[in-house]
Design a binder for these strands. Structure first.
Length: 559
RNA sequence: GCUCCUGUGGUGAAAUGGAUAUCACAACGGUCUUCGGAACCGUCGUUCCAGGUUCGAGUCCUGGCGGGAGCACCA
């Protein structure tokens, strides 16, 4: 349709004697301004030497003629826009196409492309707190948005199972004489204890640093533990158990939130490759040695200089990410690689990608880092090493309890709670920080997930009690909600191209508002145009359901 | 100190270089025998400052002020 309008406008401009004009056809923010608008007159004004308004007036009859029955109204407006309102039958056709159409909003332009997207990235041996929800919720929504193009999307998560934080947790567990760990909470506490000791005691710091090096060694030889002492075996067993318990908890929560990963990568999978490649890079002059460490001189590109291999010989996160890039290519080659992490890491990724572009330009070129904002507490900064965090599980449990006050069915309460949490995160642009107030942020009313779910449930309920009806006559002019529904595919396309789930959230809120107004004003069952309104309701249900699913927000049957 | 990000009603946010800057919360007032009130209708109230580019700037550029993040052996 947009293309058709573009042609009509181009033709009209030619008749007026204008050459190539770089105009746009867009949908105006205000529904009252019509379904499409073009700024052609504004852009052509200078060349034609007339006022924009005059040109717009001249374009109107020409465009109207070219569009024929398709448009019900073409008019000049404002400083020189030409607004186009589509005719009722054209809108009705789209509504019919949307109703009962599971693929409404999806496209085919991405079929054949493969992308891998990394997100969530919780670290075993630390607790998963509400900050990790940001990465998971945003990453999942982006994955689903990418899938609307028809692309194959592989989801992966990358967890730090070796490194100083692991040493801190294991040091505290061993000190307490723990040989087995039962739950993730226990490990989280151990990590906090180990961190405190590391900062406060020189002796503990030394022990933990040594343990860290030893863990790398033990894990690296885990497959061939011939030379292991009894204590090495005990350490390895505790490490394995701790990682297993941590990951079970993570995967349980992510599954509850609607994520299933295709690949789970660990730091320990990447260290061999990472170390080898960085050492080779030293020989090639990409990296250099400094104070016993191996560094990348980011300053030569206006970036930070970062350590890739410590003076103790252990790899840092930077080297692990280099190793990971190769590991991904080996396990599942794709056309694009996305990495979703907190905004704090942009400096890190700039350096890693700069280094990677010297080592393997093809890998660097297809990798994009997508930073997301942070979740701040009104009560102060969270830090898992201080133990003052709200864990993801605690938050979800609390919101479920609140939702349960209105829902006897606990499964529904969970759907509502998850909807509320996800919407809170997705309504804002991924990069913006969220100040989280446990009392206020998780509204179940107005601009909220449950508001969208509620509109859907009510519409579904009307359909359920109406039964089958003939579609019948339609009113002469479309309702504004119809015109809003027709925009859905375009909203989805733009949101997926711009990695902007908030545009879908914003749209769905507007859509729910239009539906609620329509519902309050118009009698559906037993009212005028009953059959047509029921089809409209089906189109609304389909649009809302597909939209919520895109965001990863559950769609309850009742609530 | 250097680098990057950011500044929109009392609060939290949205806005493809376009039209009267949108939405929710809060506050205040109304709708309550009809398809589900987690709803609807109304009132109030906003682009940090100074220049610039443009027919047109919350959006782009320059400078200033405020906030956040990063800056060598954490991830």
């Amino acid at each position: 349709m947009e293309e058709r309008i573009r042609q009509a406008v181009t033709g009209a401009l030619e008749e007026l004697g204008a050459g190539e004009v770089a105009f746009v056809v867009e949908w105006p923010a205000e529904l009252a301004h019509g379904d499409f608008a073009t700024n052609a007159a504004l852009v052509a004004a200078r060349e034609l030497g007339k006022s924009p308004r005059e040109i717009a007036e001249a374009l109107v009859p020409l465009v109207a003629e070219a569009l024929g029955d398709t448009a019900s109204k073409v008019e000049a407006a404002g400083p020189g826009f030409v607004n186009i309102t589509l005719a009722q039958p054209v809108i009705a056709e789209t509504i019919a196409a949307a109703a009962d159409n599971g693929t409404w909003g999806s496209r085919t332009d991405g079929i054949g492309t493969r992308v891998m997207i990394e997100y969530s990235n919780p670290n075993p041996f630390k607790e998963i707190h509400i900050g990790h929800l940001m990465s998971n919720v945003i990453g999942e929504a982006l994955s689903r948005l990418m899938e609307t193009s028809g692309a194959t999307v592989l989801r992966d998560t990358f967890g730090g199972d070796v490194g100083p934080h692991v040493a801190k947790a294991l040091w505290a567990l061993r000190r307490a004489g723990t040989t087995d760990v039962a739950n993730a909470g226990e490990i989280g506490k151990a990590y906090a204890q180990g961190s405190t000791a590391y900062e406060e005691s020189e002796a503990a710091k030394q022990e933990i640093d040594e343990l860290n090096t030893r863990i790398y060694a033990v894990v690296a030889q885990a497959e061939a533990p011939d030379g292991f002492s009894e204590d090495d075996r005990a350490l390895l067993a505790l490490w394995r158990k701790g990682r297993e318990v941590s990951m079970e908890e993570f995967l349980r929560i992510f599954k509850q939130l609607g994520t299933n990963f295709d690949y789970i990568f660990y730091d320990s999978d990447t260290t061999d490759t990472g170390l080898r490649i960085v050492r080779e890079g030293v020989a090639q002059g990409i990296f250099e040695e400094s104070d016993g460490a191996v560094i990348y001189r980011g300053e030569k590109k206006g970036l930070h200089t970062l350590v890739f291999i410590t003076s103790r010989g252990t790899p840092t996160y930077e080297t692990k990410d280099i190793g990971l890039a190769f590991l991904k290519e080996e396990r599942a080659p794709t056309d694009k690689v996305y990495i979703v992490t907190a905004v704090e890491q942009v400096g890190h990724f700039n350096v890693v990608l700069a280094a990677l572009s010297e080592i393997a330009p093809n890998l660097a070129a297809k990798t994009t880092h997508i930073p997301h904002g942070l979740l701040h507490l009104t009560t102060g900064k969270m830090a898992s090493r201080k133990g003052n965090v709200i864990t993801a599980a605690e938050l979800i449990t609390e919101v479920i309890e609140r939702a349960a006050q209105k829902n006897e069915d606990l499964l529904v309460a969970e759907q509502v709670a998850i909807g509320a949490v996800k919407y809170m995160i997705l309504r804002a642009a991924p990069g913006s920080n969220i100040v989280f107030d446990p009392e206020k942020s998780l509204s179940l009313e107005g601009d909220s997930g449950p508001y969208l779910q509620y509109a859907l449930v009510r519409a579904s309920s009307v359909l359920a009690s109406a039964g089958e009806k003939e579609v019948g006559d339609a009113p002469d002019a479309p309702y504004s909600i119809e015109r809003l529904i027709t925009r859905f595919p375009e909203v989805v396309r733009r949101a997926s191209e711009e990695c902007a789930p908030q545009q879908v959230a914003q749209y769905l809120t507007q859509l729910a508002g239009e539906w609620n107004s329509f519902y309050a004003q118009e009698r559906i069952i037993g009212g005028e145009y009953e059959g047509y309104k029921l089809r409209l309701a089906r189109a609304f249900v389909r649009t809302m359901k597909n939209g919520l699913t895109l965001l990863g927000i559950p769609t309850p049957e009742r609530m």
